[in-house]
């Protein structure tokens, strides 16, 4: 009985969106991520596809969906660079899975938790990316931890602003 109760509660808390938004919002994130550096130049230290992946994974609370969405967004991000396809894919797959898994257990409405989740998962994404590129594949690849830290902070701030806006798009029954 208690299990049924938990499942019911979880199903009740799962956010649902119009199907078209599952396509449009990630696409908009990819387009903006590619276009904004032209305007902002060297100040483009954020990762909109990652933020969107975390948002949907936290909201949907399905590790499989989080995994698949993270993989798809990561592969698209890789395809826009000259790097090997799969570097961001691996990192964002793990992030999507973890965000969805954690989302089952915590209150995802809380802004402080959202900010913390974005900050930590962004750092984790950078760490996995660098680990795979540098140590698994052995590529000659340098990075700056400060830039990765700033990127994580920026992602957290973007999430603080955009998550409430995206919340308004969900289907309420």
């Amino acid at each position: 009985m208690s299990l049924l109760g938990a499942d019911f509660r979880r199903d009740f808390e799962i956010r649902r969106y119009p199907f078209i938004l599952y396509v449009l919002i990630p696409l908009a994130a990819l387009v903006l991520q590619s276009w904004l550096p032209r305007l902002l130049g060297p100040y483009t230290l954020f990762d909109l596809p990652l933020v969107i992946t975390i948002y949907f994974a936290l909201g949907r609370r399905s590790p499989i969906q989080g995994t698949l969405m993270g993989a798809a967004m990561g592969l698209f991000e890789d395809a826009m660079t000259q790097h090997a396809i799969g570097l961001s894919g691996v990192a964002m797959t793990v992030v999507g899975f973890l965000a969805a898994s954690v989302g089952v257990r915590i209150d995802v409405e809380n802004h402080a938790i959202r900010v913390m989740m974005n900050f930590v998962l962004s750092l984790l994404s950078s760490a996995i990316y660098i680990f795979v590129a540098r140590y698994m594949l052995g590529l000659d690849f340098d990075w700056r931890w400060l830039a990765e830290l700033l990127k994580a902070v920026d992602n957290a701030l973007i999430a603080l602003v955009f998550f409430p806006l995206l919340d308004k798009l969900q289907v309420r029954e």
């Binding site: 590790p63 499989i64 995994t67 698949l68 993989a71 592969l75 090997a84 396809i85 799969g86 570097l87 894919g89 691996v90 797959t93 793990v94 899975f97 898994s101 795979v132 698994m136 594949l137 052995g138 590529l139």
Partner: peptide, 22 residues
């Protein structure tokens, strides 16, 4: 363990893909 299985399958597919490119 379907969640973990899906995660491992997706990760393995990408890692194999990476290995082919290097």
């Amino acid at each position: 363990y379907r969640n973990l299985v899906v995660l491992l399958v997706v990760l393995m597919a990408q890692i194999v893909g990476l290995a082919v490119q290097v």
